[in-house]
Design a protein around this nucleic acid. Structure first.
Lengths: 361, 361
DNA sequence: AAAAACTAGTAATGCGCATTATCTTTGACA
DNA sequence: TGTCAAAGATAATGCGCATTACTAGTTTTT
């Protein structure tokens, strides 16, 4: 009864209804069908013919093939989003989430649909995974450690790409929307200096990335400006390395303000900050009374009570939005200067309630 | 200097490198390039030629076009996921999330990549949005209120589709993985009956959907079986309609157990249950002492303390997994009976600590 | 030495659609 | 009555790739 042979990719002959089928049913040419079903409505197809085509299409259950359409036109009004992660960042506590929100909102506002690419760089499909992005007209990328060669290949192939996060390693070709971590961290350090702090410890993630070294640069830069009356160190520490003994040592050495790298893209929970507050508790120290705390980013995990860490706000949503806007500009072939294609957004300072005047030595 | 005219879809002549370009550079035919770059490695292309092609491809920065590939082969190893929602359900509190997890895990395990389709049924792109799913080889759908005509059109066009959630309105053609809400709700009601409850109120969502009426059916069925000694009503109430006066009325009428519809797909927060517990507090009633509470689903919002609502567990992750497995079977043209293509999974009972023996009248 | 069997590669075709150039009618106007 | 233009529709082509059928050269077989 049923010709199951046709269900197979090999054996199928014309499983799905094509424009040609509609054309035959309506007694017209395939071109006419194409014009009526997807061309601008004012084209030269008579009313009766048009109706016949529409009827036939409805009766046969014609559904356009987006692949063929895309191949023919070169566009499909689809924007890609890829994170280079095996699974999609669907958790609220994941710091990617606000980017996604911004991208989603702006894409919708601009009339583009979104394609979220999952797919780990697993051994099997790694090489093809990145090329797959070309299913969309252009793509927004997020991720601390992208496979740079693949990204370069895509870029050189002329595929419109916008990175969320600064990425100068591919030169001026790669467009991005970043956050000015360096400036924000310097400003944060300056504010602590204004509060009287003269001895700092900046705790960094072990995992170095642009977002991480930018922050370090900002800290160092501030330290240099205040080199006449302030000192600071910037150790890279894993959460478990932050022991009471270590912290005690800092304080004994005169440290009055600790800054913790935070809000980094792949760190789901800022464990370092959690550990540090825990250690301070063990040492019987309260902040901001005994010591000032700050973090180079916004917090995602819910804090008990009303603790708001001093630091700055990474405008993630806005970065997502602007990334989409930039991508669309690229898609439309708009001429953009390098400054327009590589932007750093400012991070608003957050005073919080974890830092205060330096304890007198 | 730069030929910017070529950047435009109209003016561009050969922006990106094609197999034909590689072929010319290597002095071979396009077919040879195709065979080497994507054909099985044991095909009849000599080693030197093969190397020349590989070199040329690398030098020119060739990147395969997934669209053309897909058009030619009919497959691209991509599975779609669509929720009919304007934005993607990326929040943990959203009850779609576990489905996504299951789908993601299983797709990865089977070597398929995932394409998450965003795109609201907004007036502009609504009609084309659904067809866009055909970018993938097949698609998993989730959603309480799908645009049934579009889904039918897709289905009739032969596109492999698996719905998460029961959907009999399209007959036997639409495959699905559902949860046996009816049976689970009946069992839950039976358990309460076993505890001595004889007078029930089942609070339902105002928004009717299959997942909702299935639960109601289960409740009614249990009531019918116990019609000799038990009674119950099943009002559909919005959260704000649940007032102290109303609840007081139920209790005065002898109600000892309240079941609240929960875990429905689009309800981000089970507001009805929250409202109800709040109202009970206002009335000075404690559960399970004064009254038993249960819900027809699992909870997502974090509860204060260790309250675990009586009810049952919807195996969402497992549903996601099985949906993917089923979809892949369909893709491969496997012959499946209706029973295999339309499955209801059992929901494990959850005793919780919000229900107990009925208060004596 | 002729036929059979490989080997290495190419030409041709089609996937489903959009688009352009082209052809055929018909109507308007002088 | 003849000419030109507009309207209505079609044939042809290409998007980039995979795939099949086929050609030509080289061994192997008997």
């Amino acid at each position: 009864m049923n010709d199951k042979a046709n269900a197979q990719p090999g054996g199928r002959k014309h499983q799905r209804v094509r424009q040609a089928d509609v054309a035959r049913a309506a007694g017209v040419s395939q071109a006419a069908v194409s014009l009526v079903l997807s061309g601008s409505p004012d084209l030269s197809i008579g009313a009766s013919t048009r109706q016949a085509i529409l009827d036939a299409a409805r009766d046969l259950g014609y559904v356009p093939d987006p692949i063929a359409r895309r191949l023919a036109t070169g566009r499909n009004n689809l924007l890609g989003l890829h994170t280079f992660a095996p699974e999609f960042p669907v958790s609220l506590s994941n710091s990617y989430y606000p980017y996604l929100e911004g991208v989603e909102v702006e894409a919708a506002a601009q009339g583009y649909d979104l394609l979220l690419f999952t797919g780990a760089p697993n051994t099997a499909s790694r090489e093809t995974a990145v090329h797959r992005l070309r299913l969309a007209d252009g793509c927004v990328l997020v991720g601390r450690h992208p496979p740079i060669d693949d990204v370069r290949a895509l870029l050189e192939s002329g595929f419109p790409l916008v990175y969320i996060g600064r990425h100068d390693d591919l030169g001026e070709e790669l467009s991005y929307i970043g956050a000015d971590y360096s400036r924000a961290t310097a400003a944060l350090t300056d504010r602590l200096h204004d509060l009287g702090h003269r001895n700092f410890v900046y705790v960094q993630e072990v995992d170095t990335a642009v977002a991480s070294t930018d922050r370090e640069d900002g800290f160092e830069e501030s330290m240099r400006r205040h080199s006449s009356d302030a000192v600071g160190t910037a150790p890279r520490l894993a959460a478990e390395q932050i022991t009471p003994a270590l912290v005690k040592g800092w304080i004994d050495d005169g440290c009055t303000a600790i800054i913790v790298e935070g809000g980094t893209e792949t760190v789901d929970s800022p464990a370092s900050l959690d550990t540090l507050t825990h250690v301070l508790g063990e040492l019987g120290l309260e902040y901001p009374r005994d010591i000032s705390l700050a973090t180079t980013g916004s917090e995602f995990t819910q804090r008990s009570g009303s603790v708001v860490f001093a630091g700055f706000d990474v405008p993630r949503r806005e970065m997502g939005r602007q990334a989409v806007q930039l991508l669309i500009d690229l898609l439309r072939g708009k001429e953009l200067s390098v400054a327009e294609r590589q932007r750093l957004l400012e991070c608003a300072p957050v005073d919080g309630n974890t830092s205060g005047p330096a304890r007198r030595a």
